[in-house]
Amino acid sequence: MRATAWRKAAAALVVAALAAVAQAQPIKVGVIGPFSGPSSDFGKPMLQGIQLAVEQFNQVGGYLGRPVELVIKDDEAVPDVGRKRSEELAAEGVVAALGFCNTGVAMPSLEVYQKAQLPLIVPCATGTPITRAYPPEQSYIFRTSAPDSIQAPFVVADIVRRGWTRVAIFADDTGYGQAGRKDVEAALAAHKLAPVYTVNFPLGAKNLTAELAAARDAGAQVIFSYTVGPENAVIGLGRKELGWKVPMVGGWPLSFPFFLEGAKDAAEGAMMAQTFIAEPSNERRASFLSNYSRAYQGRPAVPVAAAQGYDAAYLLMYALLGIRDGKFTGPAVKRSLENLPRVYYGVVATYERPFSEQEKDAMTPSMLVMGKVQSGAVTFAYPEDARRTLMVQRKR
């Protein structure tokens, strides 16, 4: 009888505990990105990576029984919409936000987060100015994507090692394209080089054959593209139409479906900076890819976006766990992000003090690898990079 009574009492406690958890006030976290429109091909994987991390966090109890609840806003890849949605997040009581895929959308919205003292972690947008908009010790803007200030020198160093010194730059006229163009020019200047041809083109350009012919006539040995949409495919196809077999390199958008599927065989051999390649090169990445596939019935369209979104969400949740009193004010979350109490063994990297008062970018060049389009998919350009990623890299 005593055993039966004990079991009943224990069961009642479990039911009460579960009820308390169910009734616990959720912790609201904002997510903003292009979940419809032309940039949704990487906005959706970013969101799914975030959702997967939050689901896992909540399954093990969240923050002392309080679940994280995502408040999701679609910026449609439109700057004015992004700012309006950011203002909505600030008004809805979120403790922090994760988001932005487009530099040109992020930049006008940063003021909203800074003024509201609302920490923002950017998992995808790579424009260098994003984390330089405010003095670092005052800034509420953090980032887990690789800024173009390290992507551009990384790619330039690789093409110089290959002996390609006559570079043509093709950049779109968005904030992303123009900031990236400046980063490439600076990286070339560090090698005492200058582009032999540069063109800025409007987003939505359908034909760049004349510009490609001019680059060819200028003696370019390689095309460095800086655009985030189907214009990469326009460049690749135009190069094929001219019969010009010059290599094509760029930042991470060369791993996007717009390029891989749009350019098809014209994309073959293109190389780009990557923080994550969707191959099970170590246990963490194999687990992430397996969990993602189960949740969303396949691999992410843009693996880098999904992985960086996943890691950004976990870094934020680690920061929340570092706030013992449960008072998630903006300054408290900012301080916790800058002083993470434990190492997060992530998918993209091993994050040991990824942020500080003086440093708001989590990525360093040591975390980059060179990707290459092969048979319509992105793989490691160099076997040594594949071997190196057997161990997830740390910040250096």
Rank of each mutant, 00 (worst) to 15 (best):
G243M: 08
Y344W: 13
Q59K: 14
A213L: 01
A267F: 01
Y318F: 09
V302R: 03
A11E: 13
G251N: 15
P34Q: 10
D325V: 11
L289Y: 12
N200G: 14
R166I: 03
R2G: 07
M272A: 13
V105Y: 00
A3T: 05
A214D: 07
D172W: 02
G93Y: 05
G82V: 07
L340S: 02
V369D: 00
R83A: 10
A20K: 03
R66E: 12
T209W: 06
K360E: 06
A301H: 10
S145I: 13
A189L: 10
E268P: 07
G326Q: 07
P119R: 13
V196I: 03
P38K: 12
R132Y: 04
A16E: 00
V54L: 06
K44M: 06
T126N: 03
W252Y: 09
M317K: 11
R132V: 10
Q23T: 11
G326S: 10
A91L: 14
G30Q: 03
Q59E: 03
V343I: 01
I141C: 01
F224A: 02
V21H: 09
G37V: 02
T126C: 04
R239N: 08
F288T: 06
N282T: 12
A116D: 00
Y176P: 05
V71S: 12
R294A: 13
P26C: 08
S287R: 14
R132K: 15
K264L: 13
M391D: 11
F276W: 15
P34W: 00
F380K: 01
V54I: 11
P136N: 01
N207E: 15
A168K: 04
V68K: 15
P153A: 08
A5W: 02
I169G: 10
L340G: 05
E279S: 06
I223L: 14
A17V: 14
L340D: 04
R284I: 05
F170D: 06
D80C: 07
G346V: 08
G219Q: 04
E137W: 06
E69L: 01
R353D: 03
P79V: 12
A125C: 04
A349T: 11
A22Q: 10
P303R: 11
A386K: 14
G49Y: 02
V373R: 00
G175V: 04
A306Q: 04
R216N: 05
A295K: 14
F276Q: 12
S86Y: 04
A9Q: 09
A312R: 09
I32R: 02
D41E: 14
S86E: 01
R388I: 00
M107I: 12
Q56E: 10
L188T: 01
G269T: 13
N291M: 12
R335V: 06
V347I: 13
Q374K: 08
M391C: 03
R143E: 13
V304T: 12
L208E: 08
P26T: 09
R143T: 15
A12D: 10
N200K: 15
K192P: 02
G33S: 08
A90I: 10
A349I: 03
P331R: 14
D158Y: 04
V373L: 09
S293M: 14
R216D: 02
R294H: 11
P26G: 11
G127A: 09
V78W: 09
E185M: 07
N207Y: 05
V228W: 04
T379I: 14
A146F: 15
R394Y: 12
A295R: 14
L237P: 05
R2A: 04
G326L: 05
V31L: 05
K73M: 13
I32Q: 00
L316D: 09
A313E: 12
L254C: 15
I50R: 09
L118A: 00
